[in-house]
């Protein structure tokens, strides 16, 4: 137990959670079959809004993070109307362009401090640590206050993630979720069936942006510092990889993808300079043997059958 509560492992677990939340955000846009590459852009809007609100306006973190998400979501609706008229690769390129635009705007604004970024953002861990010490608690049965506050941050993130998973599963069984699935299967047919495709596509897009914005706000308050470089093109690719590796049929797919892709570089630390090559090679192998991603609906059905609970489904 003491080994598992090592600050190092806790910190990695925290990053896994944030990336898993990003995985959910890409899952939501993919669930209508839209390949949007704007998630890093939305993440950066969320992160910057949130950091500016807490550092410059002195707003409490628990208010600033949802506000960051809402700001991202609001922008996504504005750009969603024209962008979602596009499909496939055209949408991908438009949203990719959007991400770059956001990065360049952030780079040139005064309030975002340009290329220097915003530093000295209070982290969730130190905030919780302060609250704990105000109660006069500094030691917890051999664990330092730092460990306990990181653990609490982890619990909070876990709750957010659990809520998102629950939300997605419920969404899939609702009218909205069925509409998403119909659009993903065949947009023209869905439209012929009377589904307002623009509305549902925009909804999925805005939901994805909201969650990406929240993840951005969380990450700003976990790393002390944000700069425009953190939300460049490579971040978008990373987020997309969670869905590609884990599979985008089920919400659990991108989460598993995020878990693996966040842990892998750390597990491979002992390989030193070769670790990124191994990382790349694993991805190629993965794509060659399982292009649909690790977890698809068939996988779940297969394992349910194998475990003897197939009849229930």
């Amino acid at each position: 137990m003491a080994i598992l509560l090592n600050q190092y492992y806790l910190q990695i677990a925290v990053f896994v959670m944030v990336n898993a939340i990003l995985g959910v955000s890409i899952y939501l846009t993919l669930s209508t079959g839209q390949l949007s590459l704007g998630n890093a852009g939305f993440m950066s809007i969320g992160a910057y809004t949130c950091a500016i609100l807490t550092v410059k306006a002195g707003l409490p973190v628990y208010l600033a993070i949802p506000l960051g998400g809402l700001a991202a979501s609001f922008i996504s609706i504005i750009i969603g109307f024209p962008a979602l008229r596009l499909t496939g690769i055209y949408l991908a390129i438009a949203t990719l362009g959007f991400g770059e635009v956001v990065r360049v705007i952030v780079l040139n604004l005064k309030i975002t401090n340009g290329a220097l970024g915003i530093s000295g953002i209070p982290t969730l861990g130190t905030k919780i640590g302060k609250i704990l010490s105000s109660f006069g608690l500094s030691k917890f049965g051999g664990f330092s206050a730092q460990q306990v506050s990181t653990l609490l941050v982890l619990v909070i993130l876990l709750l957010v993630l659990a809520f998102l998973i629950f939300f997605c599963i419920r969404l899939n069984r609702s009218r909205v979720g069925r509409a998403f699935a119909a659009i993903k299967a065949d947009e023209s047919a869905a439209e012929a069936m009377g589904i307002n495709t623009t509305y549902y596509k925009l909804l999925a897009f805005a939901l994805g942006a909201l969650i990406a914005g929240i993840a951005g706000g969380l990450s700003a308050h976990l790393t002390f510092f944000i700069g425009p470089k953190d939300f460049a093109y490579h971040r978008t690719v990373e987020i997309l990889l969670y869905a590609v590796l884990g599979g985008s049929d089920l919400v659990i797919g991108p989460i598993v993808g995020a878990l693996i892709l966040t842990l892998l570089p750390e597990v491979l630390r002992s390989a030193s300079n070769y670790r990124l090559m191994i990382y790349g090679a694993l991805l190629v192998t993965m794509m060659a043997f399982r292009p649909q991603g690790l977890i698809s609906e068939e996988t779940v059905r297969y394992w349910k059958g194998k475990l003897g609970r197939g009849s229930k489904q």
Partner: peptide, 24 residues
């Protein structure tokens, strides 16, 4: 659509491998 996603990820991974192979 599936083909498109597959194609895009293939390209991405290829690019990733190229960049990582360059370092070391």
């Amino acid at each position: 659509k599936k083909g498109l996603i597959k194609w895009f990820s293939g390209m991405t991974i290829g690019a990733l491998l190229l960049t990582t192979a360059g370092c070391g």
